[in-house]
Computed example of a mutant assay.
Amino acid sequence: MSWIFLLLAGVGEMSGMLFLKLSEGFRKRIPTILAIVSGGLSLYFLSLSLKDLPIGTAYGIWTGIGSVGTVLIGILLFKEKANVKRLFFVSCIVIGVVGLKLVS
Rank of each mutant, 00 (worst) to 15 (best):
A35P: 05
A35S: 12
I36W: 11
I36D: 05
V37N: 07
V37L: 14
V37K: 08
S38Y: 00
S38V: 06
G39S: 10
G39E: 03
G40I: 08
L43W: 02
L43A: 06
Y44T: 08
Y44F: 14
Y44R: 10
Y44L: 14
F45H: 11
F45E: 02
F45Q: 03
F45K: 05
L46M: 13
L46N: 05
S47A: 11
S47D: 09
L48H: 12
S49F: 03
S49D: 06
S49A: 15
S49G: 06
L50E: 08
L50G: 10
L50I: 11
K51T: 14
K51A: 14
D52R: 13
D52T: 15
L53A: 14
P54E: 13
P54F: 11
P54W: 12
I55A: 14
I55E: 12
I55G: 13
I55R: 15
I55C: 10
G56C: 13
G56N: 08
G56F: 11
G56A: 12
T57M: 12
A58S: 14
A58K: 06
Y59H: 13
G60I: 01
G60Y: 03
W62L: 10
W62H: 10
T63I: 14
T63K: 04
G64R: 02
G64T: 08
G64D: 02
I65T: 01
G66T: 03
G66Y: 00
G66E: 00
G66M: 02
G66P: 01
S67V: 13
S67E: 07
G69D: 04
G69T: 04
T70A: 08
T70V: 12
V71F: 03
V71Q: 03
V71S: 01
L72Y: 05
I73Q: 01
I73L: 13
I75V: 08
I75G: 01
I75M: 02
I75K: 00
L76V: 13
L76D: 08
L76H: 09
L76A: 13
L76Q: 09
L76M: 11
L77C: 15
L77Q: 06
L77G: 14
L77E: 07
